[in-house]
Design a binder for these strands. Structure first.
Lengths: 161, 161
DNA sequence: CCAATTTACGAAGCATACTTCGCATTACAT
DNA sequence: ATGTAATGCGAAGTATGCTTCGTAAATTGG
């Protein structure tokens, strides 16, 4: 075609080498694998995180759950409402604090969690399955290192008003 | 409190060790860093990806751009519309194919891209800055390996109808 | 040349994900 | 005890990110 479009050799480095882009792709891939493996239960990775966090707590208000899974409070509320609408979670007004919503798994929610544990785990494993076993360990350790360091940085950054 | 909530020693492995959870956290961290470094320009990581892809192409329809940045077509359209609304992108009906929308950077869009290149790069680097230089290389290589392998898997999976 | 298929979009709907704002309630300090 | 702080939520607004359905225009086969 015409030579109208110049080479445009910009100094920006290729998309495929930028950490942020690769992370977005990884996230995309994991979500797709999760949906695939858990298709029978119509559950998302976030919902699974919430269910496990709730199982561990037994009972918790929405703010505590949000912190457990490192998620925004309002997003957490939205996900909990969807789980409640499907009968997996109970959200009742707190007995000691009427501002709060005390959440807990229902029978049905606990049953779902048990059924989903295997496929969910398979999805998480499949996400890194293209690496050698040794590299998987290293990869996870590196992600943990970043999350730990940056988590502390954020805590330090946004505390003062 | 009462001993009503059993230990609940579930077989699910801790959130902080699950690849999918760590990937979500990484994504969250990168987006936050990007917003921070590029705050002056009110640009998101996705929009930056689009601008660079567009700069490289010179001219492209929305489907090509979506493929370039590995994103859903309708999401791409939404982001392009927002960039158009702010005057950074031109979206006109294709001259040879009236179904298509031919996109290109405006003067303003090209100028913006030049200005954000440094802070955007800084954000990408900051995302992995907690790893040693050598680990950063390994980390990026591993992400590329997964993206490449899974990308091929997806292409193979969803082709037949 | 015309019918069938393919292709590029757009609209609508759901689920994350975050911010800012405002309300109600609780806790605290004098 | 009372005014002030802090806290737990909810609502609204914006941006991703995906699926499904529908439309219009181009391509291709006979």
């Amino acid at each position: 075609m015409a030579g109208k479009t110049k080479p445009k050799a910009d100094p920006s480095w290729p998309l495929e080498e930028r950490p942020g882009y690769l992370i977005r792709r990884l996230h995309q891939i994991h979500v797709a694998l999760f949906q695939e493996k858990c298709a029978a239960y119509e559950i998302t990775p976030l919902q699974y995180s919430l269910l496990t966090a709730l199982a561990k707590r037994g009972t918790a208000d929405q703010t505590a759950l949000a912190q457990d899974i490192a998620l925004d409070r309002t997003t957490t509320t939205g996900a909990l409402k969807r789980l409640q609408a499907r009968g997996f979670v109970d959200r009742s007004v707190g007995p000691h604090d009427r501002r709060s919503r005390t959440c807990r798994l229902t029978r049905s929610g606990a049953a779902l969690l048990r059924k989903i544990e295997r496929p969910a785990r398979a999805a998480h494993l499949a996400t890194v399955a293209d690496l050698t076993k040794a590299d998987q360990k290293r990869f996870i350790a590196m992600m943990q290192a970043i999350v730990k360091a940056q988590g502390e940085r954020l805590d330090a950054t946004r505390s003062p008003d």
